[in-house]
Design a binder for these strands. Structure first.
Lengths: 171, 171
DNA sequence: CCGAACTTTCAAAATTTACTGAAAATAAAA
DNA sequence: TTTTATTTTCAGTAAATTTTGAAAGTTCGG
């Protein structure tokens, strides 16, 4: 298999995986493209490679930068901006997980807190139901709390088990 | 806050969270509804509660059953089918994670394997690029392998930290 | 076997989400 | 300052996904 074809396939696969997990396809593809590109790429490079519009490119690159997994690179003497992806997969994963936790999970967990103020009601049935409801919300919060701790623990793991790969030679 | 309102809000929030993670909104809402419902519900109950069509209800309930987090319950003397959600959040989470790993992640990781057969090419530049490419694929596979092990480990954790909550009383 | 109760299917419609491209804004060079 | 290169924005459009609803299928009591 030719290198170019392999890269192409990688980009497509990464796009599919992203879209299945709520990350838009193009954003995942741009990320994949930059991941396997030894050199930083310009917006025009990306447009050409993925056959997408300038606007689309701009918006998704910006979002990748917001996520902290792509950075702007300026080449001396060049007016264009270039972009380069973080190549350390561990770092990439942790940034994504942390960012999603912050953006999506935490607000909802906060909202859940409010739901525990269910009024005491007349009637045994309703009271029992309310208790069960609060019990479930509590379970979810506890679970999320545990998961959150687990993630924070992972983030602090100092050993990158994958160092020592070829990658380092080309960084 | 009234219990009914709290449930309604919970359902909405759960729907949003689901859609952000690539699970369709209605499916997440049905799941939330069944989670907080003390009694199993019929398709008609679900339709009424969520104001969705019969077809939509049927398809999403079936999918929840496929995921192993909702089950069909038959009431003696009733011709209708009723549905009930697994209430143990740990079990629910593990089933979802395992299922998504199996359905979405594993096929893509297998595909990545093929990409490592990049042809040896003429020219130093290309050879170096190919090495870097294979390096990245390797990193991703290693990472996925670690994550996979971690998940399998979690699944085996025998202690459910959340037992002892009110929930048990009503099971 | 028939008919009523209920479930399943799926093409078409509605909704949501993503993308384009041209115009406006910005920044550097002349 | 004016020109030119480049980036950003966003209204309109296109594509993808979800939902509907009616028809077909199934199951079961009589």
């Amino acid at each position: 298999m030719k290198l170019a074809d392999a890269k192409q396939q990688f980009i497509q696969n990464w796009g599919v995986l992203g879209s299945q997990w709520g990350i838009n396809r193009t954003m995942a593809q741009i990320h994949a493209l930059l991941l396997v590109s030894p050199e930083p790429m310009s917006a025009d490079d990306i447009m050409t490679e993925l056959k997408i519009s300038r606007g689309n490119t701009n918006m998704n690159v910006r979002e990748l930068i917001n996520w902290g997994i792509v950075e702007k690179v300026l080449k001396p003497g060049e007016r264009k901006e270039f972009f380069s992806a973080e190549k350390d997969i561990w770092t990439v994963s942790m940034r994504i997980v942390k960012e999603r936790k912050r953006r999506e999970v935490e607000p909802i967990l906060n909202a859940l807190n409010q739901l525990k103020n269910v009024e005491a009601e007349q009637g045994d049935k309703n009271a029992a139901d309310a208790k069960q409801f609060v019990g479930i919300i509590n379970d979810i919060q506890k679970f999320a709390g545990q998961a959150s701790k687990g993630i924070d623990g992972l983030v602090k793991m100092d050993e990158h088990w994958f160092t020592g790969t070829l990658l380092k030679l080309f960084k």
